[in-house]
Design a protein around this nucleic acid. Structure first.
Lengths: 138, 138
DNA sequence: CACTTGACTTAGACAAAGTCTATCGTAGGA
DNA sequence: TCCTACGATAGACTTTGTCTAAGTCAAGTG
């Protein structure tokens, strides 16, 4: 993750304790935290950090393409640091757990021109829904 | 849409003016209204209708499988009456316009067992993102 | 057709998630 | 070391949706 901090510095980011902490929280695979969860974890390390700063920093990371926003329901958006490896999501309908998955094929090619209605199609999100093993046995 | 009203009556729905109006508003292809838009249009025909009733009725229609919820961002959920014809969505990143689309192939079969992590996969949503013709020229 | 009853509706309070604003603080260059 | 513009802060505000208590009415019953 320190390479993330390096990249950000290279892009002219002013490095602050708050931004460093937010970036550290968003480290690892299969991380899909809400803004509030990011705030809570960041506050463990830096108690004075404000919600607005967390929202601002997450927004900047998304704009820079370092983090993806994931919206699986009308609850809070989640933030996925795994932005440089294309992937989709598998969501548990009961507990909301999220896994990164890598389907075969490219869904972009399965949308024929006749179904594009003149849109310039730039991306695609695929969300598989199901029940996770924990919820299935419970 | 009157067949929808018939189906609902057949399922034991008590028929009220409010429910009829909500069902009428959700008629047609490429209809993707937010709850507030449904409420506004319903209120044109029935001014006293309350927001809670619109939310309740939409929730019931979703539970009955007559209408789909579509979540494309952290803004309001949208309601899609085209529930009986499987389809996916093409969303304009600028203005938020939504079109129903029908890609080729079945994305469910492109998720190998090794990528299912023990989940029972029940469904899949595909959201294509791009820029619509109107926004491209503007 | 009038009565009854529980399902339905209502207004408005409440809650969750996110945005905005005015002010204060500080990273990093001179 | 000092300055200053960029960043952080608290908290008010907005949007979207849920809940509750009380009133209303659709439709079955006699």
């Amino acid at each position: 993750m320190s390479d993330l901090l390096e990249r950000l510095r290279g892009r002219g980011w002013r490095m602050t304790a708050q931004r460093r902490v937010v970036a550290e929280v968003l480290d690892g695979d299969h991380v899909h935290l809400t803004a509030d969860e990011v705030h809570a974890r960041a506050a463990d390390k830096l108690p004075e950090i404000s919600r607005a700063t967390v929202y601002n920093t997450l927004g900047e990371l998304v704009t820079l393409g370092e983090v993806l926003e994931v919206t699986t329901d009308r609850r809070a958006k989640r933030y996925d640091p795994n932005a440089h490896r294309p992937h989709h999501h598998l969501v548990c309908a009961r507990c909301g757990a999220i896994r990164d998955v890598h389907p075969t094929g490219n869904p972009l090619t399965s949308l024929p021109d006749s179904e594009r209605f003149g849109f310039t199609v730039e991306g695609v999100e695929v969300t598989y829904r199901g029940v996770c093993p924990d919820c299935a046995t419970a």
